[in-house]
């Protein structure tokens, strides 16, 4: 089933006069892990923010369950946000430095009122346990946590709205390799257990290859190649894809 359909999405940053996303069209199907690979500045993070309307697109459409997200009211959009979540790259920048971990999660419940006042605390603890943390983290500040732990909090926050679709924007790139494996395990498990759909963004073809079903390759704001895992890894068509593969040190 087609979950999201993106048509001809454009975004230009006036200040830098560059076309960050230059006509992106693709579909995301329910339950799949769609990989998006490209180097820094290729527009992949901009695309992620466009899809969730965290920044405004110049033109195009994003259909989610028959509704064009670029053409619905702010109020409707706020309600739809429940279903579409995002995990960011830098766990040091993605948490409010002044907010305790418990509050990070409780705020989501506060906004969406999807959990009764009485159950909030137990639900928060349950969610922290789901991501491998626990009750002891409730009153800690982000600065007291390691990178991996912060990323787990970021994942818990994304799960708090019980979403259908999560954009993972380089979720493991700034982590040490052993922590990276832990976080990837957590993401893989969650995806299977909750039948989540991921758009998994990374510059690392090794990571992309090990968890994605379909892969899109992006360069300078454009998709230059897309296909199944086998297509991209076994039979790449574009020279750039081949260069990326050669550079990836796949063991």
């Amino acid at each position: 089933m087609e979950l999201l359909k993106i048509n001809n999405l454009y975004k230009t940053f006036k200040k830098h006069r560059v076309c960050a996303v230059d006509g992106a069209s693709f579909s995301i199907f329910k339950g799949e892990v769609l990989g998006l690979v490209g180097e820094s500045g290729c527009g992949k993070s901009t695309l992620a923010k466009l899809i969730l309307r965290l920044i405004d697109a110049d033109k195009g459409s994003i259909f989610y369950k028959g509704k064009d997200l670029l053409n619905i009211s702010r109020n409707d959009m706020r309600k739809t946000r429940k279903d579409l979540q995002i995990i960011f790259q830098d766990p040091y920048a993605s948490l409010d430095p002044r907010m305790k971990i418990g509050k990070v999660i409780e705020e989501v419940y506060d906004i969406h009122k999807n959990v009764s006042e009485r159950d909030r605390k137990s639900k928060t603890i349950e969610l922290l346990e789901t991501v491998g943390l626990g009750e002891t983290y409730l009153n800690r500040l982000p600065s007291e946590l390691s990178g991996g732990e912060r990323q787990r909090v970021g994942i818990a926050r994304a799960l708090a709205t019980d979403p259908e679709f999560i954009i993972c924007d380089e979720p493991v790139s700034s982590l040490d390799i052993s922590v990276q494996a832990q976080i990837l395990n957590l993401l893989i498990e969650l995806q299977k257990r909750k039948n989540l759909t991921y758009l998994f963004i990374s510059h690392d073809l090794g990571v992309i290859g090990s968890i994605c079903d379909r892969i899109m390759v992006m360069q300078s704001g454009r998709f230059i190649e897309s296909g199944s895992y086998e297509d991209i890894f076994k039979n790449p068509q574009c020279q750039y894809t081949r260069t990326l593969l050669e550079s990836a040190f796949l063991p």
Partner: peptide, 17 residues
């Protein structure tokens, strides 16, 4: 074991806890 590898595609990593 934490290095992403294509042979272990879609499987859990034998990660260090």
């Amino acid at each position: 074991d934490s290095i992403p590898s294509l042979e272990h595609r879609k499987k859990l990593f034998n990660a260090i806890g």
